[in-house]
């Protein structure tokens, strides 16, 4: 039975609103997340883990998916354009979206700057793309560290950070409802130890490495799951920096 609306990235808020009204009882599935779905084998083996998640989740849930909301603008990477073509060819109904304007942008990002554990912060931010709950009650916490980047495929690395970690980069842009705000994406805090993360094979590595050098942070390029050494590197950086 088809009862699920799937999506990746941050579909345009008007599109989400329209689909919510159209399919009031539908379940929502974030295709970006690694739920352990079997490898569909559609994409090359050496490829972005998040893009592989999109295909693996879509194929696994094909019988349930009503349609896929597919951001294809500068708010998502170029891979999305090709993904749309392939998924259409595989029989999925796709509704594309471009969310590049800043008219929805919020000044405050209470989740990113709260004292919640970092993993919870990032899970709340991604969940809130669809839920759109108000988190302004969360109190601001002075940062001692920062995490810059997209939600990693391996969310467990976020558990290495203290609760006083602020969220920066694209994830912060998502909370601010401005997924294509390059100025906000590059916002960093001088003097705060920051881990700059990008998923292997993602174009954001370009920015992550550059900003890590600029702000004397730690650049992490990670594929599917973190190795012991990657975890130890983050741990050492947070303790020694």
């Amino acid at each position: 039975m088809k009862d699920t609306i799937a999506f990746w990235g941050y579909p345009h808020p008007e599109l989400i609103k329209k689909i919510k009204e159209e399919y009031k009882n539908a379940k929502w599935l974030d295709l970006d997340i690694d739920f352990g779905a079997k490898n569909s084998g559609i994409l090359p083996e050496n490829y972005c883990s998040v893009m592989k998640n999109i295909f693996n989740n879509a194929i696994l849930n094909k019988e349930k998916i009503i349609k896929i909301l597919a951001p294809v603008g500068k708010d998502k990477c170029d891979c999305a354009l090709f993904a749309v073509e392939i998924l259409k060819d595989l029989g999925f109904e796709i509704e594309t979206s471009v969310f590049e304007e800043k008219t929805y942008k919020k000044e405050n990002c209470p989740i990113s700057t709260s004292s919640l554990p970092l993993r919870q912060k990032i899970e709340l931010i991604t969940k809130n793309i669809i839920e759109q709950k108000d988190y302004s009650h969360l109190e601001y916490k002075e940062p001692t560290a920062a995490f810059w980047g997209v939600p990693p495929n391996d969310l467990s690395i976020l558990e290495l950070f203290p609760n006083t970690t602020h969220v920066l980069g694209w994830t912060r842009c998502v909370e601010a409802m401005a997924p294509f705000d390059l100025e906000l994406e590059q916002y960093c805090m001088e003097g705060i130890k920051t881990v700059f993360f990008a998923q292997t094979f993602c174009a954001k590595n370009e920015l992550a490495k550059y900003l890590a050098n600029k702000y004397n942070g730690l650049y992490i390029d990670m594929d599917g799951f973190s190795s012991n050494s990657t975890r130890a590197k983050i741990e050492a950086f947070l303790r020694l920096r």
């Binding site: 730690l218 050494s229 130890a232 590197k233 050492a236």
Partner: peptide
């Protein structure tokens, strides 16, 4: 198995890296 390095400036941590891919 791997290579790791660290750099201090005036006794304070300045930079580091740990190569875990091409071990």
């Amino acid at each position: 198995r791997d290579a790791k390095w660290i750099k201090f400036n005036d006794g304070k941590f300045q930079d580091m890296d740990w190569n875990n891919n091409c071990a």
